[in-house]
Design a protein around this nucleic acid. Structure first.
Length: 413
DNA sequence: TGTCCACTGGAAGGGAGGGCTT
DNA sequence: AAGCCCTCCCTTCCAGTGGACA
């Protein structure tokens, strides 16, 4: 009989009861250690169920502090209650990291309000922005009720596109006839309101909620709860929860990271055919997460960014640490010569380096060397188990050439 | 104390590429 | 087809800067 490659998995013992429960975007029955925040937010949104306009809110806290989870949780309950009470309440979540211009946010919200009988999506480009805005108002009014617009990672949007959008959204109620709207901004950055127009700042910051990072013990509680729901009772070895929590607590108390760690550790244990997760699996999982996060980021970098990253790595290969922008630019220009490309300006490269810094692939610290000028000190933060050459070379043929050539710094005397 | 280095980072604007309206 | 609009990528220009050095 023909054997199927999946047969061995069918017979394999699984450690999971329900893997979904171990994902960070899963909405659990309860969110431990966030009772206060839930209370504050839901108390405000209660207004929506009474048909009034809730205050706009801004939620602050580091990544993985539960801001998005809490908001999602409260909005879910809000909609459910609205249904039973016969109140039209709608919540729309926009992730401003992916959807990061005024036009795109407005069209995204507008298109999420599309009725089944309509076909006319707002196009992803082409319309003047105010037309998109008017169309959005029209659709909201047609539906009526209260809309809760959640802008996740709002700081990212403001830094990139300014505060025009927030001005318009927080001012929406003056254009709406039958519908009402309130805005919840979620930010990783406490100081992002510094960039805002004072009017927008006061309208958006009617109610601030601060999310403190979870400490190791709180993370343990979260993990225990999820593990209970998601994993077999005997599947967790001694010290595993504690280790996951401790490692995530080092990452500024990131619950998302803790959950990923636990889930992937369990996957590792399962793959190895072990009966329970042990601390070793957690270590393996941790290093895998690191490289898994980086690989697609590097692979999808635009080619110029790849060249810049390669230039930094080549510098490090030659034993240089804390390289300056000028040095990177030197190598970059030579690399461009090798592959017969026109080099970009140093200003642009400086910007691209800052970009790589934001992506977490390098660290770029601006330092002053006194007489010897002011520049960035650049180091890569790509762990050793990530094979950058292969990742880049498979995506970009020229990268072979770049990595295999010899480059020298112009010594300026 | 002032100078000066090697940049940084903001601003403005060009041009290409997508799309819409008339 | 012409005239718009939006976005992205890039260049050019330039004021600003932290701190070593004379």
């Amino acid at each position: 009989m023909e054997t199927n490659i999946f047969d061995k998995f069918v017979s394999q013992k699984t450690l999971f009861k329900n893997k979904e429960h171990l994902r960070h975007n899963f909405r659990p029955q309860r969110l431990p250690h966030r009772e206060e925040e839930i209370e504050k937010i839901s108390y405000n949104l209660w207004e929506a169920l009474k048909g009034h306009i809730p205050s706009n809110m801004t939620l602050y806290g580091v990544t993985g502090a539960g801001k998005t989870a809490v908001t999602d949780y409260v909005c879910h309950h809000l909609r459910a209650k609205g249904e039973t009470m016969g109140r039209q309440v709608e919540s729309i979540m926009v992730n401003c990291r992916q959807i990061d211009t005024q036009y795109r946010v407005l069209s995204h919200i507008g298109n999420s309000l599309l009725e089944d009988f309509e076909q006319d999506e707002i196009p992803f480009t082409g319309w003047p922005t105010d037309r998109v805005f008017n169309e959005l108002i029209r659709r909201m009014d047609r539906r009526g009720g209260v809309f809760v617009i959640v802008l996740d990672e709002i700081d990212h949007l403001v830094r990139k596109a300014g505060d025009d959008l927030l001005y318009n959204l927080t001012n929406m109620n003056s254009s709406l006839k039958t519908a009402r709207a309130c805005v919840i901004g979620i930010s990783n950055d406490l100081k992002f309101t510094d960039f805002l127009d004072p009017r927008v700042r006061s309208r958006l910051g009617q109610l601030d909620v601060l999310f403190r990072p979870y400490d190791a013990e709180q993370l343990q509680d979260i993990l225990r709860q999820r593990a209970q729901e998601g994993l077999d009772a005997e599947a967790i070895g001694p010290g595993v929860i504690e280790l996951c929590a401790a490692l995530a607590a080092q990452e500024h108390g990131d619950a998302r990271c803790a959950l990923d760690l636990l889930r992937i550790s369990a996957e590792k244990a399962e793959q190895a055919g072990d009966d329970a997760v042990n601390q070793n699996h957690v270590r393996i999982a941790q290093s895998q997460i690191e490289s898994d996060q980086m690989t697609p980021v590097i692979a999808t970098l635009p080619s110029q960014q790849k060249l810049v990253l390669a230039s930094i790595l080549l510098n490090e290969q030659n034993g240089l640490r804390n390289v300056q922008t000028g040095q990177v630019y030197d190598i970059y220009r030579q690399a461009c010569q090798h592959i017969r490309q026109n080099p970009l300006t140093q200003r642009r490269i400086s910007g691209l380096i800052s970009n790589l810094d934001m992506l977490g692939l390098v660290t770029a610290r601006t330092v002053s060397k006194g007489r010897y000028g002011r520049s960035k000190e650049i180091n890569s933060c790509i762990p050793a188990n990530v094979d950058v050459r292969t990742i880049m070379s498979t995506a970009e043929e020229e990268m072979h050439v770049v990595f295999n050539a010899n480059y020298h710094h112009q010594t300026s005397l």
